[in-house]
Write a protein that binds this DNA or RNA. Sequence first.
DNA 1: TTTTTGACGTCGC
DNA 2: CGCGACGCCAAAA
Length: 132
Amino acid sequence: MPRKGRTDRSRSAETRVPDGIPRQQGFFEDVFDIVRQVPAGRVTTYGAIAACLGSRLSARMVGWAMNASHHAIPEVPAQRVVNRNGMLSGKHHFPPDRPMETLLRMEGVDVADDRVVDFKSRFWDPGQELAL
DNA sequence: TTTTTGACGTCGC
DNA sequence: CGCGACGCCAAAA
């Protein structure tokens, strides 16, 4: 199909549907989709998601995508995504009314000192689960 | 359009 | 064992 004169990059402004709902923007969708598949009470890491996407993407992109997760639909449980240390690195980015730590505790994940307790057990590998 | 940043990860010193 | 620098790709300014 013939590509219009504009570049693919500039579709950002056009990716918005008339309803006002921002459509998932490429790479973001992949990240959101994986995060949404993370079961409650479980956590995953940026690197795991990045690896699941093909390792070609850096873990940074995952974090960057999560930044957009706030306006993503449906809501993305970003609280279940932590760094490889199990630290709630993004808690500072959560709404004050709903701290990341609180959300995790609510799901049954014990958090102490901004770290997931027994992170290893709580870890949910998207690459392994989604490989089915 | 180019430049900077970004909720990380891994290698190096 | 602790701290520093680089890399990765994409989006926002």
